[in-house]
Design a protein around this nucleic acid. Structure first.
Length: 329
DNA sequence: AAGGCGGGGTC
DNA sequence: GACCCAGCCTT
């Protein structure tokens, strides 16, 4: 890490001169890579969004020049379903404590779970440590290159493999997260929101939208994700501040139609096993262990549920039984 | 394709 | 109180 605190435009600035204005300011590279396009509207969108990122992108620490591929991978895992602001302090502490895969591989798992704190989905912490161990054992302690090798690591799926390829290795990758899905759904497809489940058609659209070569592809990955996070948000999109509103956004052009009345029932959380598991893990993080009797007080009305959750935590490797108590592994 | 899996901020 | 968040994994 250089320690530099260059304001904004970190990645775009490093990868490519930011175009001074909307529109094409230089010829594109030959369209050799699969999934590229010569659609002028799409080209305008790409240049516009990259330019916007140069001025408005956040100065996030894992974007700093010199951040190791491992540190980028850790950030991506932490960011799986957890907002940036909550990840920031945990990531900083984590990387200071365990800077390399070998460091994390050798750490006591109980300490790993404690350091994960309340980021949620603590199975991710277990998988991250397993991931570090696999990197040490099978890749000489170095984060491997290539989507296939990355996806073989525990906890690394399609998105994270692509994100590590783009943001750590600076190679071309089809990165599609919830932000990018939403920006493409609106700006290209004219939809208020993407469909609930990710489709092959969306993957094809993202592939088609991706510039043919790095560093421009990487700048696009980063910029479009940031636009979705800061401007083209799920709930109240800030279209007045959006560089695409008058540069070809299909949704705005269509009059920003509302989403069809969605009956997507979300899972409830109150009263679920997921909630109780979280409460049990909070006790274990604090005390290291707990008796069954103590855990029963978390839901005195339903001892079966407590027992079920304890058992599932053990089955997941998040806790172990020892001397009649539940404790961190 | 659907459902489980945390936790907290926001509207 | 419902919705959302740089998803992954199993069924």
């Amino acid at each position: 890490m250089t320690g530099a605190h260059a304001p904004h435009h970190l990645d775009a600035g490093r990868d490519r001169e930011v175009p001074p204005r909307v529109g094409r300011v230089e010829p594109d590279p030959p369209l050799v890579a699969e999934g590229t396009t010569d659609d002028p509207t799409l080209e305008t969108i790409i240049d516009t969004v990259i330019d916007w990122f140069g001025h408005h992108g956040r100065d996030l620490p894992w974007r700093h020049d010199g951040t190791t591929p491992w540190a980028v991978l850790v950030s991506e895992v932490m960011l799986q379903q957890t907002p940036v602001v909550r990840v920031l302090p945990r990531w900083t502490d984590w990387m200071q404590r365990w800077p390399t895969p070998a460091d994390l591989a050798d750490a006591p798992t109980a300490e790993v779970l404690r350091a994960w704190d309340r980021l949620g989905y603590p199975r991710r912490a277990l998988r991250l440590q397993e991931c570090a161990q696999m990197i040490v054992r099978e890749h000489g302690g170095v984060v491997p290159r290539g989507i296939e090798a990355l996806r073989a690591l525990p906890g690394i799926g399609e998105y994270t493999a692509a994100a590590v390829t783009a943001f750590a290795h600076r190679e071309r990758a089809v990165v599609v997260d919830t932000n990018i899905r939403r920006v493409l759904a609106r700006s290209v497809q004219g939809l208020a929101l993407p469909a609930p489940s990710y489709s092959a058609a969306e993957r094809a659209l993202a592939t088609r939208s991706l510039p043919p070569q790095p560093p421009r592809s990487v700048a696009w990955n980063q910029a479009v994700m940031e636009l979705g996070a800061l401007v083209c948000t799920a709930r109240s999109p800030r279209c007045a501040q959006c560089p695409l509103a008058e540069a070809g956004c299909a949704w705005v052009a269509a009059g920003s139609p509302a989403a069809p009345e969605g009956s997507r029932r979300r899972q409830a959380f109150e009263g679920t096993d997921r909630q109780l598991r979280g409460q049990i893990m909070a006790v274990l993080r604090r005390d290291g262990e707990a008796t069954h009797a103590a855990l029963l007080t978390l839901d005195a009305a339903d001892p079966e549920r407590v027992a079920r959750c304890e058992a599932s935590l053990v089955a997941d490797g998040l806790a172990v039984r020892s001397a009649g108590r539940l404790r961190l592994p």
